[in-house]
């Protein structure tokens, strides 16, 4: 078990502070995606750099979720290429992307409703578990050791997200905000290099949003996880992201720091409907 250092006191997180933004870790180039006659994405290129928080914004139907789906292999674009760590990524399945270190959360919560919060988070580590069928049936030696080692890691995530009290509760019974947190925990359990967050704060009240922002920034600081997030709350986006990509009708309007994007005339036109 090679667990990364994870401070046991979550509230005292961010000991290391923000890590400097590194090289390009993922690059999408000239992506075009069509569903029949509908052009979801047209000729989109941008880079994701290591340790950064990149926000993708845009009006509804701009193709933001489709973009994430392309990145984690759920959709296969008709044109364009995706480079992951400098290598061109060929057609791959979502589970291959997960194994390559890309995790994600969903706009509509996609938890496993019949399982407890702990089991949901443990499922995030399934790809790292190797014990055989027979080991598992006997639950001796290897399988048990593995379970306990991964349980320890998951308990640290539970501690970090402050959801100790609900670890054994079936997630179907949890309120919305906590479900979102469990979903983040499940994605974190896989120790991803890149974390795709699809509207992590949708439908939350101000306090819940603040909590979620704190978790996102803490994860970014502490694990150096690269984040790509979609968000509609402009205040949140401007505050937490290092860079912003703006999409509109499947095209890229702008790409830059929050400040640059805010003063971009095209962006203002798209959002305010001016000329």
């Amino acid at each position: 078990m090679s667990a990364p250092p994870l401070s046991s006191t979550a509230s005292a997180a961010a000991p290391s502070g923000k890590r400097p933004i590194g090289d390009v870790i993922l690059s999408v180039q000239n992506i075009s995606l069509r569903f029949g006659g509908v052009r979801a994405l047209t000729n989109i290129s941008f880079d994701v750099r290591q340790h950064e928080v990149l926000a993708i914004i845009g009006p509804n139907g701009a193709g933001k979720s489709s973009m994430l789906n392309v990145i984690n292999g759920f959709y296969h674009p008709q044109e364009g290429k995706v480079f992951h760590k400098g290598k061109e990524r060929l057609k791959m399945k979502p589970h291959d992307a997960a194994r390559a270190g890309i995790a994600r959360t969903f706009q509509n919560i996609a938890l496993f409703k019949g399982m407890s919060a702990l089991d949901n988070i443990m499922t995030g580590r399934n790809t790292m578990m190797k014990s055989s069928l027979l080991d598992q049936m006997l639950y001796w030696g290897r399988a048990q050791k593995e379970e306990i080692a991964h349980r320890e890691f998951c308990e640290r995530i539970i501690d970090f997200l402050e959801i100790e009290a609900i670890r054994k509760t079936p997630v179907g019974r949890l309120p919305y905000g906590l479900q979102k947190r469990v979903e983040l925990g499940r994605a974190l359990a896989a120790q991803p290099e890149i974390l795709l967050l699809d509207e992590p704060m949708a439908g939350m009240n101000v306090e819940e949003k603040e909590d979620m922002c704190r978790f996102i920034l803490d994860v970014n600081d502490e694990f150096g996880t690269t984040m790509v997030l979609i968000e509609h709350d402009m205040g949140v986006v401007m505050d937490i992201s290092d860079r912003v990509v703006v999409l509109d009708y499947g095209r890229k309007l702008a790409d830059g720091t929050p400040h640059e994007v805010r003063s971009n005339p095209d962006v203002i036109a798209a959002y305010l409907g001016g000329h």
Binding site: P94, H95, A98, R99, R104, L111, T123, N126, T127, A187
Partner: peptide, 8 residues
């Protein structure tokens, strides 16, 4: 779908 996306 979620199962597949977390690597199952």
């Amino acid at each position: 779908i979620a199962a597949e996306i977390i690597g199952i």
